[in-house]
C-alpha cells in the first residue's frame, strides 16, 4: 500500500529525513515514534503527498504522487486522510464547515460553494461530531474551541472523508488519556479506514493501539518492530539526548 525507497528530504542544509526504506501493507496500524525534530512530520507529509522527497521515491496505492497529473493526484489524495500537527482548521467558520471540508475532494465546485451558504447533508456531519463527543459544537465558531476540541474536529473531518489510508500527526497530543484512547480506537474501527499511520509522543499509546512501531532518530529509521517486541531499552535509545 505504501512503499518508500531510499526516501530522503532536506530543507536547505538540514536533512530532515534520510534514506528511509519502508513498506506498509494494507490493514496495518503503524505508530511513528521519535524525539522532537526527528522527522516524524516530514515522513507523514511524504505519505500524503503534500511533500515530495528530494531523494528516493514514494509510492502510495502503487503510484508515485510526484509523477501524477494534477487531477489524478487529487483522486489519489482523496483516498488519504490527514490530520496535521497544527490541525490546519479554518478558524473563522462554524465547526460544521470544517467537518464538511473533508468531503470537498468528492464534491463538485458548485456543491462546495453552495454548501458554504446552505450546508449540505448535515446529518453526516452531526453523526461524525457525535462520534467524537462534539455534537453540541456543530454551530460553534471554530476559533472558540479548546485545543482538545479542535483536535476532535479534525478527527471528525477525517471521519466524513472516509479515507482508506489515515496519516495522523500527533492527533491526540492535547487530549486527556481517556479521550486519546477513544479517538485512536475510532481511527482503527472506522469502516472505510484500512491502514493507519500515526505519529505519537506516548510510547504506551503506540504499543496499545498499533501493531507495528517505527522509530525515527535524526531523520533515520532506526526502529521497526511489532509493538509487542519494542523494549524499554530501545525506546530509551530513541529518545536519549546525545
Amino acid at each position: 500500500m505504501v512503499r518508500l525507497r531510499g526516501a530522503g528530504c532536506r530543507f536547505g542544509p538540514r536533512e530532515a529525513l534520510r534514506d528511509v526504506d519502508l513498506t506498509i501493507h494494507a490493514g496495518e496500524r503503524v505508530a511513528v515514534l521519535g524525539a522532537s525534530g526527528a522527522g516524524k512530520s516530514t515522513l507523514l507529509a511524504l505519505l500524503n503527498g503534500s511533500l515530495e522527497p528530494t531523494t528516493g521515491s514514494v509510492e502510495v496505492f502503487g503510484e508515485d504522487p510526484a509523477l501524477l497529473s494534477v487531477p489524478r493526484r487529487r483522486r489519489l489524495q482523496r483516498r488519504i486522510g490527514s490530520v496535521s500537527q497544527d490541525l490546519a482548521l479554518i478558524e473563522q467558520v462554524r465547526v460544521l464547515h470544517n467537518v464538511n471540508a473533508g468531503r470537498l475532494g468528492r464534491w463538485s465546485t458548485t456543491r462546495a460553494l453552495a454548501s458554504l451558504v446552505w450546508p449540505h447533508s448535515l446529518d453526516v456531519v452531526v453523526d461524525a461530531l457525535d462520534r467524537v463527543d462534539l455534537g453540541w459544537a456543530l454551530h460553534e465558531r471554530t476559533e472558540r474551541l479548546s485545543g482538545g476540541e479542535r483536535q476532535r474536529v479534525a478527527i471528525a473531518r477525517l471521519l466524513v472523508q472516509a479515507p482508506e489510508l489515515v496519516v495522523a500527526d500527533e492527533p491526540v497530543s492535547s487530549l486527556d488519556p481517556v479521550r486519546a484512547a477513544e479517538i485512536l480506537g475510532l481511527l482503527r474501527t472506522s469502516p472505510a479506514v484500512r491502514t493507519v499511520v500515526v505519529a505519537l509522543h506516548q510510547p504506551a499509546l503506540a504499543q496499545k493501539h498499533c501493531a507495528r512501531v517505527l522509530g525515527l532518530r535524526e531523520g533515520r529509521l532506526v526502529l521497526d518492530l511489532p509493538a509487542a517486541e519494542v523494549s524499554d531499552a530501545a525506546l530509551n535509545d530513541l529518545y536519549a539526548l546525545v
Binding site: 503534500s50 482523496r78 470537498l104 475532494g105 465546485t109 462546495a112 460553494l113
Partner: peptide, 17 residues
Amino acid sequence: RALRAAGARRFPALAYA
C-alpha cells in the same frame, strides 16, 4: 494546504480556507 492534501479542487479549497 490541508484541504488540497485531501484532494480538494482549487476553487472550493480557496473558498473554504
